Amino acid sequence: MIQAKNIHKYFDGLHVLKGVDLHIDKGSVVSIVGASGAGKTTLLQILGTLDKGSSKDPYELIINGENVHLMKERALARFRNEHIGFIFQFHQLLPEFTALENVCIPAFIKKTKKEEAEKRAKELLSFLGLQNRYDHKPNELSGGEQQRVAVARALINNPGLIFADEPSGNLDSESAENLHNLFFKLRDEFGQTFVIVTHNEELADMADRKLTMVDGNIIS
């Protein structure tokens, strides 16, 4: 699913990623752990095509057989929209839109018909136990409910790959546990691949693989 070779990244002369090599199998749940500043989020953003590695250090990033590093911006944006979903610590829902409308946004970007997008969004929200929350705006939802709406949004285009950055970091312990179990249920139901940056050791240890980053490198 993912093959990354020799990924370097610099910020103002600081060498953040130091030649990371990584292979992730399809249908696996992989956690990435490490101290703050180890490079976890930077690596996740590059793997998710939201950022690029160092141009002065040749690297390779292949996702689902596609060399995304060589894609032009428009093609890359289309690939990202169709094949990758994102879940963040802060759900980043648009406050003026309902849960249903927030979930539909990636589908509308893909130019999915409104009727089809809304049908899929309702299926996902119902699957996540939010069948009575379609018309509620984010400020009318609990933190756990908001995060489940964000999960539905990440899934709306049926991506094969989900990146999550501290997805339970803003949740209480019960909501966090429910979200963690949900990831594995989704993997089992839909065969998706999850790459999760987390400080939550319980979630990290549940994963099929646990990768530890130290000072810009994966050490285990």
Rank of each mutant, 00 (worst) to 15 (best):
S168M: 11
E166N: 08
K137P: 04
I84R: 02
G13D: 10
D12G: 15
E189H: 14
T193I: 01
Q131L: 02
S220H: 13
L125T: 14
V195S: 00
C104Q: 10
V30T: 02
A99Q: 06
H69F: 07
T42S: 12
E118S: 11
N132Y: 09
L182P: 04
F163W: 00
A99G: 03
L43Y: 03
L14Y: 12
N67I: 10
S168P: 13
N139I: 14
A176R: 13
N67T: 13
Q147S: 04
K110L: 05
E140D: 09
G191D: 03
E189Q: 13
G39S: 04
S173M: 07
N132L: 12
A117P: 01
A176V: 07
G37F: 00
N217M: 13
I196P: 05
A107K: 05
N158G: 10
A207D: 00
L130K: 14
K52V: 10
A117I: 04
N178G: 06
H199N: 08
L186R: 12
K56I: 09
Q45G: 02
F88I: 09
G53K: 01
M213K: 07
L141G: 03
G48F: 00
A121V: 09
F79E: 07
A154E: 10
S220C: 09
N157F: 04
K18D: 06
N64H: 05
G144S: 05
V214M: 09
L94C: 02
I84E: 01
F127A: 09
Y59Q: 12
L22H: 07
V20Q: 08
S173H: 06
V16E: 00
A75P: 04
H83R: 15
N67F: 13
N178W: 07
